[in-house]
Design a protein around this nucleic acid. Structure first.
Lengths: 262, 262
DNA sequence: TCCACTTGTCCATAAGATGGACAGCACGGC
DNA sequence: GCCGTGCTGTCCATCTTATGGACAAGTGGA
């Protein structure tokens, strides 16, 4: 909503949209009908664009399954871009430690506009795991623990703008996501430093998160843990929260020290 | 050359081209006139496309310098794609070791079509360094040590096709890049396992490389070292070559063990 | 002051993306 | 065996939309 910046080459928008859709899909694979559905474009158009993107190496077309994946060019470009945006390397050890010490799965998410995108997932050892979150998955800020953790440290005006979405958030993610309940959660998050998502998206699938701050002090990333309700009882939350905050602080500090490109 | 696979959405080609141009630029930054020049498109078109790409987050426009960079969306997508194409993590320790033990700068390059793309660079300690190669830089196979190392282990027919380019290689990279001289180099490379580039691209700027093989046994990546001529004397080449082969083998083996997605 | 070289913008034109429609194939039910 | 359903791949007339020549305006150097 609210586009038209310059004059606009809207094919670019469609291309970006398709890349995002493919990137968001579960194990990196999406079939044509699903992409058509998700994009709202017509099938021939999607078909043509996907094929063109694959011809450029930006996508891959797995011949047997007919699924589309992010291609080697994206990987190559991403590797170059990573020189400018490199928390990943800093975060991986922290995720590993979180997963090792808690047994839950640990995640790094990044803020991207009004959404969070999951960048890294490290599996925990506990045999019951939630797959609501995985690499490429996006949620609006305010939904899921990563987005809540980030939102809690945004300026009030920003929060107001984000919460005022006309109710689509509730429709997509369930009635628990009202502006009031989110505000209440943010309040608690600010007090504790970490946030708790008590199965708001999927019943029984809990999560906790803590924000990581960039050099300007903005909450740009978040660490989070997910698992089943039984593993997030109040008495354990303190332990998990402390761990999350420790690792989040560690990364924030490393980012501060780290010399950045340009 | 030789396009037109399906029906083609050629904007996609232009978009991909621009992304590549920006990705290839020295410290990730390219100015508009340079991009216009490199792309062969007209200025308004490039301008419009770049702005649209930036609006989608695929590029970044640095306001002060007016330079264009790969954007956060590319980073995000690349991070997701990296799950499918992850030698990077395996290679980094090897590059570090190469750089530490030799003092030269060490590189990981990937084969992408008929080119190699540099993915990672680890600086060596030796105070005179070559900057011919850095992240995002592409060379045709057969030019630069990484591309030679890969080419040496391609099927003969493939080599023939690659060498038969009508002389543009020589024009772009200097007269040392004739088919005959490359063939001779490949011959030596096959015998030694590693390749030596004796300043073919830039006089005095030498390099050595060794191929890394994927699970199917294809040479898909290469490790390489670069530095000044004086550091690549014949008596030292054996030492450097041995190191390169060791690390290349190590990565090849790890890739074989590693369970891959899909 | 003038020149060279930028960035940003407009708009008539024509290139080319679009999408309805159809062919062909694979699967499953009856 | 036959029909229905859902898929991929392709065509092409239509009209959306990308294109690029041209111009305004700003900057810096000589």
């Amino acid at each position: 909503m609210a586009e038209k910046t310059v004059q606009g080459a809207q094919v670019v928008g469609r291309v970006a949209q398709l890349l995002r859709i493919v990137g968001r899909s579960p194990e990196g694979g999406a079939a044509l009908p699903a992409i058509v559905e998700a994009s709202g474009l017509t099938r021939p158009t999607v078909y043509r664009l996907l094929n063109s993107l694959a011809a450029e190496g930006l996508l891959d077309h797995h011949a047997e399954t007919g699924t589309w994946h992010l291609g080697p060019e994206i990987y190559v470009l991403g590797a170059v871009a990573a020189n400018r945006y490199a928390i990943e390397d800093l975060a991986r050890p922290s995720l590993q430690r979180l997963a090792d010490e808690t047994g839950e799965s640990a995640f790094l998410s990044i803020r991207r506009g009004d959404e969070t995108v999951c960048l890294l997932r490290v599996e925990g050892s506990f045999p019951v795991r939630s797959f609501v979150l995985h690499e490429g998955v996006r949620f609006p800020l305010g939904v899921a623990s990563a987005g809540l953790a980030i939102m809690a440290f945004l300026p009030e005006a920003e929060v107001d703008r984000l919460l005022d979405d006309g109710g689509t958030r509730g429709e997509r993610f369930g009635p628990a996501h009202t502006a009031e309940r989110i505000r209440a959660n943010l309040e608690v998050t600010r007090r504790n430093g970490y946030t708790v998502n008590p199965g708001l998206i999927l019943e029984g699938s809990w999560g906790m998160g803590a924000a990581v701050f960039d050099r300007q002090g903005n909450p740009a990333w978040a660490l989070s843990l997910t698992g089943i309700e039984q593993r997030f009882r109040p008495e354990r939350q303190e332990f998990l929260g402390k761990l999350l905050l420790e690792e989040a602080h560690k990364i924030t500090q490393q980012l501060g020290e780290h010399a950045s490109a340009r």
